[in-house]
Structures are given as structure tokens and as C-alpha cells.
Design a protein around this nucleic acid. Structure first.
Lengths: 245, 245
DNA sequence: GCCTACACACTGGCATGCTAGTTGAATGCA
DNA sequence: TGCATTCAACTAGCATGCCAGTGTGTAGGC
């Protein structure tokens, strides 16, 4: 008995596949986006089987686009396909999380420094605006809203620099981290501290201080990593590794 | 007249697709490896059309595995596929090179620091051994050999840390950079300076000095970036952007 | 002679049928 | 009753046929 194998109802998402030109999305793009969304949202939990036949029925298309989409997700390591056996949502290990956060720390640290060096006119304003929204979300205790703003804040910096490859990379890292973030309960006061961290980053960028910006970004992500780790220690079962054999 | 369209003879490569389990490689894996090798080696230069039909003939298989393989390469951005028009080897822009090097600098800087912190027993020895080989290659003026050792040196650090995701990422970055490296003529004395840089990195790691290791790695990659840039300035035509429309 | 419009050939996207390999269960044997 | 073997159902990989959209070459009109 491997897993339920039930594939929850799935809606077609309009989003296109990242990394491909923004053409009219093909069917494969659509099911890619749909399944990815289902995985990230937790609708398809780690370890669950992906019933391609059911997907074909639900989405009203043949096995071809579905196979393509699952292949892409496998390439992204969000699903693991066992050749003549089945396709499964990949499991998460604490080691993976630490590694993803290490990469994020390195990359976003440098990006913050670059943003400070770049003297981008619009960025300071956009960051400040995002911060105001974040403050509002914190006051309103709107966790979901704050998270969206959190992600958006980080995205602002990469996008302002116009670094598309780095943006793709971070997006991919976030997609993996998103799955575990869905599980964890953010400790009280977390949003407030995150907001302070963000302020420090934005201030350093506005002050055109690359070193400080990098430090602030790295400190912020280290705090986030620590939060992940402490949560994992409290819920060791969620990160159980390689019990699928 | 877009391009020659001739697809040079292609041999099947035994290598498996990175990012997939090391199972018996499927046909799609094989043609993926073959075409990727052809692209990286310059056999299929940037901008050239990929004749899928010819590939099917040469490799003796149907369009299916070829399509899958090209799709993966498109996902990796090594080829760009224009829906009802054709698939082409993606062009290289100087901006991309700078961005890739920026990411490398950020990532490898932190990895060097982690290696210094990790106190890995075998790594120091392996790095030292690689350095001896590198010195031999420099004395023998064996450019190709030195490059292989260069890549291997950087790989040693990631692998010793056991960070598979970071390793994959760097591998992907290198695959893009490899194409332009094939084009450029390394300036005289470059190998020697690279060797010195590598020594500084290895020394810092052996001395368990994370800060120094990061600095050395970053300085090294900045020098490499500068070499790329100066070469690009001397050969502006090679990096011509978006002349394909 | 030049510009336009049409038709053809080529491309990738998709549907479907087939094959080989794995899994788990049912069945026969000890 | 417990174990080994066989078989049936499922999976992914692959081949092939068809369709729609695009680019180009050509022929016709101005």
C-alpha cells in the first residue's frame, strides 16, 4: 500500500510555464501549471501518486500533454518518475530545505548588494510601498496576505535588476520551499521580525550600501532558515526521509 | 535564409540526463545527452536550426524521444523552440554571461566558505592533488587538460559538501558558459593566474577560514568574468544579440 | 517592374495504439 | 497455515498518424 492514489479535482490554471516564451500556452503548459499548483498548494502531498489517466479525464485531454508536463516536473524534481511503475510527488528532506536556503542566502545576498550598487530609481519606491502594505498585513494579522507580500518583496529586487536567470532560479527554489512552508505554523511574532528584516534590507539598498544590503539579506534568510529548522525539529515526522521503499 | 540547417553527424552519448535517477537511460535521455553535447561542443553553434527529422534518421528512432529531448533542452534554455516554425540553438548574450557569472560568484563564494567551515578530511587532500595536476598542465601548456582540471577543481568543493542541488545548478550554469568558453581564446598567462587563484581558495579552505575562502573564490570568479568581458569587447560580433528576427 | 495574394511545404502540438517491464494479488503446493 | 510461483492489471516508453499554424516561393494583378 503505497499511497491513496486518489487524484483530487484539478482546475486548469492559466499560468504559463516559466522558462518558456510567453506564447499562447500549449495544453502541456496548462497541465504543467495545474499540477504544479496542486503540488505546491499541498493538494497533492509529497509521496502521493500521480494518476495520469485520471488527469486526462479531468482535464479533458490525451495522455500526451500530461506526460510532457509530468516530465517537466520530474526534470524540476518536483515529481519523481519510476520508469515502469509510476510517478509520485517527490518527498521533502530537511537537508534539501537547508540546501535551498543556503543557495537563497548566497544568491539573494549578492542580489541585494547589486541592487544597492545599481541605484535603481523605481526600486526604492516600490520597496517602500511593499513595506507599507506589509505593515498593514502585520497589524491585521493577515498571514496569507503577508506571505504574498513577503514573496513579492523578494521578487521586486530581482526583477528590478532585470536578472531573468537568477529570477528563474529563485522561483524554482521557492517552489520547493513553498511546499514545506504550507505545512509549518509560523511562530508568533515571525511576521513582525520579517518586516523588520525587510526594512533593513530596503534601507541598505536605499542608502546605496552594498555591503550592508548583503548582510541584511543574509541575516534575514538565516533567521528564516532557523525557523525552518526549529519547526522541523518539533515535527520530525513531516520530514521523514526515504520511507518510500 | 535563417541558417544552414545542416545537422552534423551525431553520435549517441552514453551519459544520462542530469537530474534524473541513474536508471538505464531511455532513448530520450540518450538523444538529450547527444544533442546537449553537440551544442556545448560547438558542433551545433548558437542560432543553428535543429533538424529533428535528420536526428531521427541519424539516431535511428522516432520523433518522440527526439521531441522529448528537445523539450528538455528548451526547458533548460539551451534551445528555443518557436511553436510552428522550428527549434534553434539559443543564442548567447553578454548579459547572460555576466548574469551567470554573478550567480556563480555568489554561490561558489558561499560554498567555499561552507567547505572551510565543514572541516572535510578528504577535501584538502583532493584539492591539493588537483592543484599539483594543474601545475603540471600549466607547465605543459596543455590548455584542454587544464580546463578539465579547472572544472574538476570547482566541482570537488560542491561534491565534498554533498550539496546535490547546488551542484546541479552550477552544472547548468557551466553548461551555458561552456559554449562561450569554447569560442574565446584564453589570454596568455590566464592558466597561471587561475592556478594561483585556486591555490588561494584551497589554502583558505585548508586554513578553515570561511571568510577568506569566500573572498578568494569571489575574486577568482570576478577575474574570470573580467576575462569574459574583455574578450567580448574584442569580439563584439560573437555576442550579437537578437539578430534572429 | 513591383507589390500582393495564394498555395505549398515544413514545423511542432496532439491523439492514439502498441510494447515491455514492474507490482501486487491470487492461487497452488508443501 | 505459510510460502513460492504465476498471472493479471497497471505503468511509462515509444511509434506513428493527423492537424493547425507559419514561412516562403511563386504566380498573378496593378
Amino acid at each position: 500500500m503505497r499511497d491513496t492514489g486518489v487524484s483530487p479535482a484539478l482546475a486548469l490554471t492559466a499560468a504559463s510555464a516559466p522558462g518558456l516564451d510567453a506564447r499562447r500556452p500549449s495544453k502541456a503548459d496548462q497541465v504543467y501549471a495545474s499540477v504544479k499548483e496542486a503540488i505546491l498548494s499541498g493538494l497533492l502531498p509529497p509521496g502521493s501518486a500521480i494518476d495520469k489517466a485520471a488527469l486526462c479525464d479531468q482535464l479533458g485531454m490525451s495522455r500526451f500533454p500530461v506526460g510532457i508536463a509530468v516530465g517537466r516536473l520530474a526534470f524540476e524534481k518536483l515529481v519523481v518518475v519510476e520508469p515502469q511503475h509510476g510517478s509520485f510527488v517527490s518527498r521533502i528532506s530537511l537537508g534539501d530545505v537547508r540546501e535551498f536556503m543556503l543557495i537563497r542566502r548566497a544568491l539573494e545576498g549578492d542580489l541585494a548588494a547589486e541592487a544597492a550598487k545599481a541605484r535603481l530609481p523605481g526600486l526604492d519606491m516600490e520597496l517602500a510601498r511593499s513595506l507599507r502594505y506589509q505593515a498593514t498585513a502585520v497589524e491585521a494579522a493577515d498571514h496569507a496576505g503577508f506571505y504574498r507580500l513577503d514573496v513579492g518583496f523578494h521578487r521586486l529586487i530581482v526583477q528590478a535588476l532585470g536578472l531573468t536567470h537568477a529570477a528563474d532560479m529563485l522561483e524554482r527554489l521557492l517552489s520547493h520551499l513553498e511546499r514545506v512552508r504550507r505545512l509549518l505554523t509560523t511562530p508568533p511574532g515571525h511576521a513582525g521580525r520579517t518586516l523588520e528584516d525587510h526594512r533593513a534590507i530596503a534601507d541598505a539598498i536605499a542608502a546605496r550600501d552594498p555591503g550592508m544590503a548583503a548582510l541584511a539579506a543574509r541575516a534575514h534568510l538565516e533567521r528564516t532558515t532557523a525557523m525552518f529548522a526549529s519547526f522541523a525539529q518539533q515535527n520530525p515526522t513531516l520530514f521523514a526521509e526515504a520511507d518510500h521503499a
